[in-house]
Design a protein around this nucleic acid. Structure first.
Lengths: 337, 337
DNA sequence: GCTAGTCAGCTAATCGATTAGCTAAACGTT
DNA sequence: AACGTTTAGCTAATCGATTAGCTGACTAGC
């Protein structure tokens, strides 16, 4: 690849002139500008961002670490962050932690090593896993999205998770259900706790108590939810409705119900958190609580950019409003076994 | 951030010694190694990949350009490529072209500017859009995945698309359908052409001809397919089966069918290309043709790495076997209107 | 005619890691 | 003792872009 030196030689000027021409051209005569431009496309020159990144300490890279891209929530987050970053002149280094806190830490080090100016992290762990991090990780800024406890030592962007769960569960209860189960997430994750809290709060409002056997712990993935739900519905007295704490577990639940030939919502009502493209094409169309992912991505990136510009004030907490999307997967409790 | 110089000073050695210690330690005494190690974690030193990338001309970055991450095929591809790249010591710079050839070209330039050593490209355009590219784009290697015509001037990795379509259509035909429609992709894309070819070939085997009104052109996205399918089934004589050329259009089709209260497979049979996590949780479970995405990702990365190691031989073509997954969305043609 | 001022454009140092090539100490051999 | 050989570790150049600071040409004012 041609370097700036080559361009300078071809145009008969110094590298300083080439550099000046490329970046705003303050004091370069039109004639030299033209000669430089000619040389540039004769040689197919393109700026080497690595060299310029080294010199300037600005790489125009941001990191994005998610636990699982195949989760439609993260897929859409990746999409939004990518779009926004591009429009602001940044490129995205993607990392997938696969729910492992160790891998996550490794990815964060990797992002730092590549001199990412900031990283948007979707933490997979519990609060205590991040105590060593700060607003800065080296000179790299960090903001947390999704599983973001307000106790984290950096900026957080999250859904009002308890409210989201409550909305869904209140909707289920409005049909008169009394035997509700929850497919919850990993106990150590803040986001699971909040969603469980919302579930319990909604029950309490109706003076209902959750059967402990109906509080299932999943890992936010398909397989585990599938198995757990199969067990659940095999019980002598099965629940008449299931609240599912995320979209991937919803797949597992719907599979298990289909295999057991239980109709939704005839025999079992289902509602979950996370909307996704398939939810309305499903039969029945699924009632879900939607997270404003694009807004959250914007907030995360804005927040990160503010930090990258040098804001060192105390960590901020932003929460977002969930929205209940009523479709057809909840109805009156049907004939019980 | 601490630099190697700082570490050298703290350990009382030269930067050469620190560098040698970090990379394989050929001739560094255990004592100095220990002093360097101590200094490194006292200062929290981490190698600056930008500086080392500049010096070595090796950034350990590869680019990945897809047209749409929210398409489950690409989501899984991103996941697989990311995994494999990580295991081989590379990080992934992600780019999303949003089906735009211009943006794709811009992303390729961006990858090159960041000195990505290679890029896996899922082309959104037609063959002629890539004639200016070669095996190398600057010093960056390029391989194409998915919409990869054998006429492209670089390595290609693709499904046997005609065969994939044929498998699905033969399956549909085996139930005795005679009025088939196809939701095809953009005409300029190689992958659409091949899938259409396969569709037509399967019909021909049974001495059937496709009604021109039943050959629908989509853009591989939800909305357009939804609208197009709504039109299709509103026709006086609607098809008894629909073959859909990708997963996103399948969503649109299923939505349109649900809205028109047409039962699947009772009134309309449906089969498509691309398996995805929801397909079996769907009601009815969807009959699809699966692409071996993980294999394709492995092939793409292996191919890219070979090129990165200096292989300059002629472009290779790899195609992969589709697999029909029979579920429950196809059946005998039902009562016609 | 001479000095001061202006500014286009150049020279050279710099970012941080790597490494070719060098120095000097230590050891073995005769 | 003298010399060669080995090897631990250092010095300094290098990658490519940026930019502080300098040079020298030109203009203006006295």
């Amino acid at each position: 690849m041609a370097t700036m030196k080559d361009v300078a030689k071809a145009a008969g000027v110094s590298t300083a002139t080439v550099s000046a021409t490329l970046s705003g051209a303050c004091f370069v005569s039109p004639e030299l500008q033209a000669r430089v431009a000619t040389a540039i496309d004769a040689l197919g020159y393109q700026r080497n961002s690595v060299a310029s990144g080294l010199k300037l300490g600005r790489t125009s890279l941001i990191g994005l670490v998610v636990s699982d891209v195949t989760n439609p929530f993260f897929t859409e987050l990746v999409q939004s962050v990518q779009d926004l970053a591009r429009s602001r002149g940044y490129s995205v280094l993607l990392g997938i932690s696969d729910h492992s806190v160790e891998r996550e830490a490794e990815l964060l080090r990797l992002m730092r090593s590549h001199q990412a100016e900031g990283t948007i992290l979707c933490p997979a762990g519990a609060v205590e896993d991040y105590s060593s991090l700060r607003l800065n990780f080296g000179r790299m800024k960090v903001v947390a999205v999704d599983n973001a406890s307000p106790e984290l030592p950096f900026d957080t962007i999250a859904l009002e998770n308890d409210k989201a769960a409550k909305l869904a569960v209140q909707h289920i209860l409005s049909f008169g259900h009394r035997r509700l189960a929850i497919m919850s997430g990993p106990a150590h994750q803040f986001v699971s706790q909040r969603r469980l809290d919302g579930f319990l709060a909604a029950l309490k409002e109706k003076n209902l108590k959750a059967d402990p056997a109906f509080i299932r712990r999943g890992d936010f993935r398909i397989e585990d939810a599938h198995r757990s739900c199969a067990e659940l519905i095999a019980r002598p007295k099965r629940p008449t409705a299931i609240f599912v704490a995320n979209n991937l577990m919803l797949i597992g639940v719907m599979r298990a119900l289909a295999e057991a030939r239980l109709s939704v919502p005839g025999q079992v009502s289902v509602a979950s958190i996370d909307d996704f493209p398939w939810s309305s094409a499903f039969h029945p169309a699924l009632t879900v609580v939607r997270q404003p992912i694009a807004l959250m991505a914007t907030a995360a990136l804005d927040c990160l950019l503010r930090r990258m510009e040098g804001d060192e004030s105390a960590p901020t907490r932003q929460t977002f409003e969930p929205e209940l999307i009523v479709r057809h997967s909840c109805a009156k409790p049907g004939a019980e076994r």
